[in-house]
Amino acid sequence: MSARVDHVVTSGTFSLDGGTWDVDNNVWLVGDDTEVVIIDAAHDPDAILAAADGRRVVAIICTHGHDDHINAAADLAAAGPVYLHPADDFLWRAIHPTTDFHPLHDGQHFEVGGVFLEVLHTPGHAPGCVSIHAPQLNALFTGDTLFEGGPGATGRSFSDFPTIIKSITERLLVLPANTKVHTGHGNTTTIGAEAPHLDEWIARGH
């Protein structure tokens, strides 16, 4: 029963700064046939639980506190403990004022299906953004920090472009080039595919 990465796409909305947008979110599941870690609690708890397929939920890790990544968390909390970096507590409380989460911290490890997941604090898109590195699976789960084609958006409240560039440069692009980057929205990419474009991103202030 070797560990694997499963994937489900859920759909809903993202709201911030008075605007609302339709979005499709990637929900990633890491585990074996008996236990699983869910990465991001997006939109549809029933679809996420169906993807978990009866496995024991070790943790539900939210990569950051934007509502499209946490809006199913309260419904999933009965299945397993929900984790979020405390720097995004204020975003969490706006959606779940009466539900608590377990705090994530940089360097924290989770074990599931015989593999380890390491938490990397990668702020910039939001103060509490994290990426999850699974070196034994050659996988990195970046939430909205790094996408195919560049960094996550930094044009809204509580975000900062120099900070996200620092996070990507110092925490992500140092990983092996063949590391698969599983993103919060859109296509999977690799560190090697994205790293050569760092100067372009900086030049255009993406």
Rank of each mutant, 00 (worst) to 15 (best):
Q108L: 13
I165G: 03
D144S: 08
P135H: 13
D53P: 05
R204Y: 03
T179H: 09
F90Q: 07
G80E: 14
R55L: 05
A52E: 12
E118C: 10
H43S: 05
S131N: 00
G192N: 10
W92N: 05
E35S: 09
V8E: 03
C129D: 15
A203C: 05
G18C: 05
S15N: 06
E194R: 04
N26G: 12
V58S: 03
A78K: 12
K180A: 08
D68F: 14
I95K: 10
V130R: 02
F14V: 07
D44V: 07
I168K: 04
H66P: 00
T20S: 14
R156L: 15
N178I: 01
A59N: 03
A139C: 02
G150S: 12
A87H: 02
A79T: 12
G65N: 09
I191Y: 09
D199R: 09
V119I: 15
H133G: 00
G107V: 05
G31P: 01
D67E: 10
R204G: 04
G113Q: 03
T190M: 10
A79C: 11
V57W: 08
F158Q: 15
L137H: 14
I164P: 01
H66N: 05
T122D: 08
L16Q: 14
A47E: 12
T63K: 04
F110H: 08
I38Q: 02
T20P: 06
L91S: 05
W21P: 02
T145P: 07
P196E: 12
S157R: 14
L117K: 06
L84R: 00
T122M: 08
H185E: 03
V130D: 04
I39P: 01
D32C: 06
E194F: 06
Q136G: 10
V58T: 15
L49F: 01
N138L: 00
V130Y: 01
L117G: 06
V174G: 07
S11P: 06
F158C: 13
H125R: 08
P45N: 11
H197R: 13
A41Q: 15
T190H: 07
E194V: 02
G150L: 13
G113I: 01
S15R: 15
Q136T: 02
P135F: 14
P196L: 13
I48E: 08
A87M: 00
F110C: 04
A134L: 04
G128K: 06
R56Q: 13
H121P: 00
A47P: 07
A72V: 12
P86N: 05
G192K: 06
I168E: 02
H182C: 08
H66C: 00
G184T: 09
N25M: 12
N25I: 02
